[in-house]
Design a protein around this nucleic acid. Structure first.
Length: 488
RNA sequence: GGCCUGGUGGCAGAGUGGUCAUGUAGCGGCCUGCAAAGCCGCGUACGCCGGUUCGAUUCCGACCCAGGCCUCCA
């Protein structure tokens, strides 16, 4: 089965054919680390991490890079208002990002390059662009000359004339052309900076990705991915820089863009303020529920996030874990967890995760209805194998339902007492105990054989809300300093 | 204003030129000491108007609506 991907360059779904099957390269735009990311920011690493996983099953050597942008004016602003060096901000939030992504099961990149570790490459790239006539220096800045690149605007589907005519771009006096963008800019003494042929300065926003992709993956990469809000100007500018710095070589062969998360019907974004901070969501919800929900819609579609969708995600996973709970006695070794072909083929079709979930639902049905021990074994292996590829269903069901660690002596005692009452047909007492346990958040389900399942609901309140999220973001940042400006 | 997506059953969300998505919620029944779970069944889903077609939710056109980008943004 062929892997097919929707290529943003052609706006068509195409067969994925790597330039070199011996070394497949993928670059995903990572975060600018100046605060905690919101749940929408987690969609690319989760989705494209899954793509990396698929690629690694098919190609012997896949290099997946996900960068950290650790030099940026928002970082500078955060550091300045906190009265700390930018490192204090960037190391803290880069580490938090990495930890939170790990909790979501987002595949770790093979390389996580940082912009500040590539200043040399950035300067070299600027020099090359100037030498080849695609960039020019002016008043301590280096600017990309948009008019020098005929294909500028191809990815985002806009013409250079339109952009130049559109007067919404800030026009600095030193720009030849209003659409020209900054590769390098001067730093005042109070700002971080590096010595360069154009004086002490720092890189503009887009150049770091071009430099890091070149340094680690080469001049032409197979896949470049990120949110569709980056298509313009970020990815457009990356293409311009890299293509011109590499003598016209194709920069990225396949461009993948994920759709935005919406909340209250609008794009979740920092500027709108309707964000749910991932770091906080992870405290209130099972990471697996969050991961499931991130994969619930096809990655190119918008994905609606709400209390309702969260509860529905939880309920679906409960159902699948219940199957695993009922089959807890069926031993399945790691080697026996093969990925069912239907699950993989769904994902190979441009990462059709909703289709993969439909397959998983059928596998769960099959496991529920399996009669013989052989059939049970096979069905459980398929469910765990398919879930494994999606990064789901790998927990002990007892842990999932909470009884793995929440069963106290009191609960154990009451369960024993209840079983005795039931066998003595003292149903009044049995019901009473069930009520007592329910009040403690423990649900008892009787099984036909006289035993019971116990389900503990520790996370009783699975709700969301922006106000507390914003507050938590505030206090988290405030730990770095007591005077923080969170205006962005 | 320009460019680009999308409008599917209460909710979420795939897909297809002609019996089925799937999940979740609801209703009825079976099962159960009672529940829960499970099982069975149910609800005239494809924005609107035309066109093409034997047949369109699926193709084409117009319209309406929503969202995204054009400025920092995953």
């Amino acid at each position: 089965m062929q892997l097919r991907l929707h290529n943003g360059l052609t706006r068509r779904t195409e067969d994925f054919v790597p330039a070199n099957p011996e070394r497949v390269t993928m670059y995903v735009c990572g975060p600018t680390v100046y605060n905690y990311v919101h749940i929408g920011n987690a969609r690319p690493p989760v989705v494209f991490g899954l793509l990396a996983r698929l690629l690694k099953r098919r190609y012997p050597n896949v290099v997946y890079a996900r960068n950290i942008t650790d030099i940026d004016d928002k970082i500078n602003a955060a550091a300045k208002s906190a009265g700390v060096p930018i490192d204090a901000i960037t190391t803290h939030f880069a580490a938090a990002y990495r930890e939170d992504m790990a909790k979501l099961g987002a595949d770790e990149p093979d390389i996580a390059p940082r912009a500040t570790a590539h200043i040399g490459q950035i300067i070299v790239m600027c020099e090359r662009l100037i030498a080849s006539g695609h960039a020019y220096a002016a008043e301590g800045h280096v600017l990309f000359d948009v008019a020098s690149f005929a294909d500028y605007g191809r990815l985002s589907g806009r013409s250079t004339e339109d952009m130049i005519a559109g007067a919404r771009v800030e026009v600095a006096p030193y720009k030849k052309n209003p659409a020209d963008f900054v590769l390098w800019k001067p730093s005042t003494p109070d700002l971080p900076g590096w010595d360069s042929p154009w004086g002490r300065g720092r890189p503009g926003w887009h150049i770091e990705c071009s430099a890091m992709a070149e340094a680690h993956l080469g001049e032409t990469i197979d896949i470049h991915a990120g949110g569709n809000d980056l298509m313009f100007p970020h990815h457009e500018n990356e293409i311009a820089q890299s293509t011109c710095a590499h003598g016209g070589k194709v920069f990225a062969r396949y461009w993948l863009h994920n759709g935005m998360l919406t909340f209250d019907g609008r794009k979740m974004s920092k500027s709108l303020g309707n964000v749910l901070v991932l770091h906080e969501l992870l405290e209130k919800h099972s990471p697996e529920v969050l991961r499931f929900l991130l994969l619930k819609a096809h990655y190119r579609q918008p994905l609606d996030w709400s209390d309702t969708t969260l509860q529905q995600a939880r309920a679906t996973l409960d159902g699948w874990y219940r199957v695993l709970l009922d089959l807890a006695d069926v031993e399945v070794s790691a080697e026996e967890r093969k990925v069912p072909a239907e699950v993989e083929s769904a994902l190979l079709d441009d990462l059709n995760t909703p289709q993969a979930f439909a397959v998983l639902a059928r596998l769960a049905d099959g496991a529920r209805s399996a009669a013989t021990s052989e059939a049970k074994h096979e069905a459980k292996a398929a469910l765990l194998g398919g879930g494994g590829l999606l990064g789901l269903l790998q927990q002990d069901p007892n842990i999932w339902f909470g009884s793995g660690h929440a069963e106290t002596d009191v609960v154990t005692k009451l369960r024993r007492e209840r079983r005795a009452a039931r066998s003595a047909k003292n149903f009044a007492r049995a019901d009473e105990i069930r009520k007592e346990l329910a009040a403690m958040g423990v649900t008892i389900e009787d099984k036909p054989d006289g035993t019971d399942n116990v389900i503990v609901r520790e996370r009783l309140v699975e709700t969301i809300g922006t106000s507390s999220s914003v507050k938590s973001q505030l206090s988290a940042t405030a730990q770095l300093s007591d005077k923080v400006d969170l205006s962005n």
